[in-house]
């Protein structure tokens, strides 16, 4: 740059002073003043921001800023505000019996939504996203309930679990007829044929007839003389179309031989009472509730 300012004659504007290819010069046009002022204002703003807000990392943490702003606190406040907004509904759900909750459209809609979210988080891994279940994990949409499908029954199962570690757990045990040598393989096959026959499955008539006698002796005490099960003992109804482990002869033989039974954890203590009630309402609303 030379000391003397080089002025372009055509425009009257200053040039950068550099010449390309003998005669090409570049005009030195400053940025518009408003632009520069905005730029400086932004720099000032940034300095103020560093002072007022959390900005710089330090070895052990970060500068906190004079306003004491924290995104975590904002989230905590928003969550607190949200639960305060839900407070009235949650308090009502906590105090009212399930039957009254189901009668109140606002409460049941709220409980249903809360239950849906809690279900996806806690229950879906075993029972499936749509509560459709899987082999060994009951389908919660159908009308067949091992421990009862009334709202209060569902809530009790949720709270204490099935074969869980909770003291008040629901518990039942199918004997291991094969493994414990209570019945031999042929007898087990015969009983399985009988069980299939009472739910309208294909039958080997002779085997089923032999199985009927064994059933009366060994199984009827829990499953009932008619095979329709007993809710209070968690003994499944064997005459319907719903099979926890499948309705093939092999699945039934395996159940009799090994005495299968799944475990449902107790959710009391893990989930708060309002969420448990909401889950009961949601599961009841899936269509199978009694």
């Amino acid at each position: 740059m030379s000391d003397r300012r080089d002025i372009d004659q055509v425009t009257g504007a200053e040039t950068t002073g550099h010449v390309w290819d003998d005669d090409i010069k570049e005009l030195n046009k400053p940025l518009p003043r408003w632009w520069l002022l905005t730029f400086y204002a932004c720099i000032l703003w940034a300095v103020g921001y560093w002072i007022a807000y959390p900005a710089w990392p330090t070895l052990t943490g970060y500068t906190k800023g004079t306003l004491g702003y924290s995104q975590r606190q904002v989230v905590a406040r928003e969550v607190a505000a949200a639960s305060e907004a839900q407070g009235g509904l949650r308090a009502q759900i906590a105090s009212l019996p399930l039957a009254d909750i189901l009668k109140n459209p606002d409460l049941s809609r709220f409980a249903d939504a809360a239950g849906r979210a809690a279900f996806a988080e806690n229950c879906a891994p075993c029972h499936g996203r749509g509560a459709q279940g899987a082999s060994g994990y009951p389908n919660l949409r159908d009308d067949d309930w091992l421990w009862g499908g009334k709202p209060e029954d569902i809530l009790q199962t949720l709270r204490y679990g099935i074969r869980s570690e909770h003291k008040q757990t629901r518990v039942s045990q199918m004997p291991r007829f094969g493994l414990d040598n209570l019945l031999d393989d042929k007898q087990i096959f015969d009983v399985a044929e009988y069980v299939l026959s009472i739910s309208g499955g294909t039958i080997a008539k002779d085997a089923a007839a032999r199985g009927a006698l064994i059933f009366k002796e060994q199984c009827a005490v829990c499953h009932g003389d008619d095979g329709k099960g007993k809710l209070e003992q968690g003994a499944p109804n064997l005459t319907d179309q719903i099979w926890l482990y499948g309705n093939t002869i092999d699945a039934i033989v395996t159940s009799i031989r090994t005495g299968r039974g799944g475990v449902m954890p107790a959710w009391e203590g893990r989930l708060d009472p309002v969420t448990l009630k909401a889950l009961a309402v949601y599961v009841h609303s899936l269509g199978g509730g009694q």
Binding site: G128, R129, G130, Q132, N139, R141, D142, D143, D144, G200, N237, D240, Q241, I242, L286, G287, G288
Partner: peptide, 17 residues
Amino acid sequence: DRVPPFVTLSDGSVRNS
């Protein structure tokens, strides 16, 4: 409802939601 598309009930009837 897509999951599950249908449910079999104890008497063998099928229900859609």
